[in-house]
Design a protein around this nucleic acid. Structure first.
Length: 733
DNA sequence: AGCACGCCGACT
DNA sequence: GTCGGCGTGCTC
């Protein structure tokens, strides 16, 4: 990521009496407003401005632009009583907008993220003891006074509860002046982490890594260690060092909802929970947290992607945990790679960024090789347990029964594991019963009406479901094409079908199926995980949800039902992702004293991914991947951008991409750039919109943005045609 | 994102 | 005749 690729927002010549104000809407420029007499808000000031016939909150961005007619200008209404958006935040917003070619107003929107964040904080009214003699001291009133005697003010409800009286008693005492009202600041949903609480004892390797990290030098460091090597404990010490400097620290996690165990460990080390930032916060929590980040009061913030855009007052450290996770890639709205943007944010602030992973992405590994990032390795497994041996099962020889998916050797291994009082896990990364349903009589395939995708049968809910747009329908009683009934055939396995097979093969085993459909909320997840850790279960059948961060100490066998799944589709990172996912699943086995083993079923055991998993040889696998990408000029040895044109009217989309193809820039600006397409996008129809895609491929030293800007300048977008620009695309779907 | 304007179908 | 459906376009 190099900062030259981004240009800053054009700000016009100095114009007295006006200022440009950025508004958190999908706008590519700031708007100019007249300044009231004698009022010069500094850049970053939050102001309310009229827009159309309403009033919105924006941020003063710079000087006005004299090209805008003065008669058009409206006046800034007021400055809000909030600290200004810090300079680094503004530069970051500009950078992100320019790099990802997104409307800068949309990026500001992510940074404001709470429509009412700037409203004055609502205070809670609480009571302390007033004039005791202002009324008769009845028994109930005496209890109220007693409840307040130890000092802390209480709200009406709490006070009535602890005094054992009705709220009416409290209200009457207040009216008489026996109680005095005090404003209670809104309760902070986070505490003050203490860096000097004693942490767990560190191994020698961990201590070496800590020593390197606590120096907190600017730049990027890869913290690489296998599952259980104690990466978290190591970066906690970097957080502690940052806190001792009085600065804020940000931890980005791929899926905050699943990190109850992480939060527990944090609270144990620091004596208080961190401030959290994710989509499930309530309005009040968002407001309080946002303000506390801006005020510098929230010291450690843990969150998903969007936490990167919070208005940090003094950020001193960024940690991206599980940096290889594709969940860091935001795929709708403003499209960006949060891990890469975190590196940029760190660069702008001249602070350290730590990328932690057991299976780092190829991009990161290459950055280490080329000297752009530092690397720290944590070789030892924390509890001293060995990595479980991995065996490949060749499905061409070791064939499952017809319409079944477990090979004889995997079945045997499950029996053995259960018989020796261990637990077994069968992993299949496919929700539902079967990925495809067809009619045996006419061959009709059940397809989503608004996407190019099969409908997946979910037998537990008796529905057909599209996994791309959420379309659902009852399982029809007969084939919609030929009208015959009882002719549906389920093709291929999903976890539900696997569970059916397991019930047949292991009827005596206590089985548990864990998928995002069965999990629901964090509470239910904790419950299911508890069932496993307390050995109320012998056999777990699940999708990738079980691969994430949960500790299963009694697990002795992991069986991967379809290790090849995820390798098809021609995705650039398919092999890499498969390696990462299967490595993570394999890491579930044998984490306590019990040795574990891992069996991978594959039709292609000779593939480098499979061999690498078998030999635990990540390095060799990455070298092979690296070579492939280098030869193909693919990232990180080249750059990609995708343009997706979509619309409801297929002909209009087709005609637009023809116009675009004719307008592809030539000459100097196209040096080192090639354009592939237009081609139907991998999901040629999604949510009822037809999609065509161009893929732009550049040499590493050439940025695609100037080329794209030249291309798109002057193009018209009639009707409901939409253009999506995806810089550094990840999933090609 | 709102909130207008605008241009077609079913109502008091 | 007009009420209202939501497609389209603008907001300094």
């Amino acid at each position: 990521m190099d900062s030259e690729t981004a240009s800053s927002l054009p700000i016009g010549p100095e114009a007295p009496g006006r200022a440009s104000v950025l508004i958190p809407l999908a706008l590519f420029t700031a708007y100019d407003y007249a300044l009231p007499d004698g009022f010069t808000p500094p850049p970053g000031a939050f102001v309310s401005v009229p827009l159309g016939r309403r009033s919105v909150t924006g941020v003063v961005w710079g000087d006005g632009d004299l090209r805008i007619d003065a008669t058009k200008l409206k006046q800034i209404e007021a400055a809000l009583p909030v600290p200004a958006l810090p300079d680094i935040s503004r530069r970051f917003i500009e950078w992100v907008a320019a790099y990802n070619m997104a409307p800068i107003g949309s990026v500001l929107r992510m940074a404001m993220s709470v429509p009412d964040a700037l409203e004055p904080e609502r205070e809670t009214k609480a009571w302390t003891i007033g004039d005791r003699t202002a009324g008769k001291l009845t028994e109930a009133r005496a209890r109220v006074i007693a409840a307040l005697e130890d000092g802390a003010p209480l709200t009406t409800g709490d006070l009535a509860d602890s005094a054992g009286c009705t709220p009416g008693v409290v209200a009457e005492m207040a009216r008489r002046g026996m109680l005095r009202a005090v404003a209670l600041p809104a309760r902070r949903p986070f505490g003050v982490p203490d860096p000097d609480r004693k942490g767990p004892a560190l191994s020698e390797a961990q201590q070496r890594a800590v020593d390197a990290l606590v120096a907190l030098e600017p730049g990027v460091t890869l913290l690489n260690g296998v599952t259980g090597s104690g990466k978290t404990e190591v970066y906690f010490e970097a957080i502690a060092a940052c806190l001792r400097q009085g600065r804020q620290a940000l931890v980005l996690l791929p899926e905050i909802a699943l990190s109850a165990q992480w939060l527990g460990r944090f609270a144990e080390r620091f004596g208080a929970p961190p401030a959290q930032w994710h989509s499930e916060l309530t309005g009040l929590e968002r407001r309080v947290t946002w303000r506390a980040v801006l005020d510098g009061e929230a010291k450690v913030i843990v969150g998903a992607r969007s936490a990167l855009f919070l208005p940090y007052r003094d950020l001193g450290l960024i940690i991206v945990d599980e940096e290889h996770e594709s969940a860091f890639k935001q795929e709708d709205g403003v499209i960006y790679q949060a891990r890469d943007m975190a590196v940029v944010r760190g660069h702008l602030a001249k602070i350290p960024v730590i990328l932690a992973s057991a299976t780092p992405s190829l991009e990161t590994v290459v950055n280490v090789d080329q000297g752009r990032y530092r690397a720290l390795h944590l070789p030892d497994r924390h509890g001293g347990a060995e990595l479980p041996p991995v065996t490949l099962i060749d499905l061409r020889r070791d064939k499952p029964e017809r319409q079944q998916w477990l090979s004889p050797s995997l079945i045997r291994a499950v029996h053995e594991a259960i018989a020796s009082e261990g637990q077994a896990l069968l992993f299949l990364n496919r929700r539902g019963y079967a990925p495809l349903t067809l009619c045996r009589d006419c061959g009709h395939r059940m397809q989503c009406p608004s996407c190019t995708a099969w409908l997946v049968e979910h037998r537990y809910s008796a529905r057909l479901q599209c996994h791309h747009c959420g379309y659902q329908t009852q399982m029809p009683p007969a084939c919609p094409a030929c009208g015959h009934s009882g002719t549906f055939a389920a093709c291929g396995p999903g976890v539900e079908r696997l569970a059916e097979e397991a019930a047949l093969l292991f009827p005596q085993a206590r089985r548990l199926i864990i998928t995002s459909d069965t999990v629901g909320g964090p509470k239910k997840t904790t419950e299911l995980i508890k069932m496993v850790t307390e050995r109320a279960v012998d056999l777990i059948i699940g999708t990738q949800i079980i691969a994430k961060g949960h500790h299963f100490p009694h697990l002795t066998l992991v069986g991967v039902v379809d290790a090849d799944l995820g390798l098809s589709g021609g995705d650039l990172r398919a092999a890499e992702r498969t390696y990462q996912l299967l490595h993570q699943v394999a890491g579930r086995a044998g984490r306590a004293e019990k040795p574990g083993r891992v069996l991978l079923q594959t039709y292609d055991p000779d593939r480098p991914v499979m061999q690498a998993l078998k030999d635990h040889d990540q390095t060799r696998f990455l070298r092979l991947e690296e070579e492939d990408r280098r030869v193909a000029g693919m990232p990180p040895f080249g750059r990609l951008a995708a343009l997706i044109v979509s619309g409801r009217d297929e002909a209009a989309v087709e005609s637009q991409v023809r116009i675009m193809a004719a307008a592809i820039p030539r000459g100097d600006i196209a040096a080192g750039v090639s354009v592939l397409g237009p081609a139907p996008a991998p999901l040629a129809m999604l949510r009822g919109r037809h999609r065509r895609r161009f893929l732009i491929k550049c040499r590493r030293e050439t940025a695609p943005q100037p080329f794209l800007r030249a291309w798109l300048r002057g193009l018209k977008w009639p009707g409901d045609l939409k253009l999506q620009i995806d810089i550094d695309p990840y999933s090609f779907l």
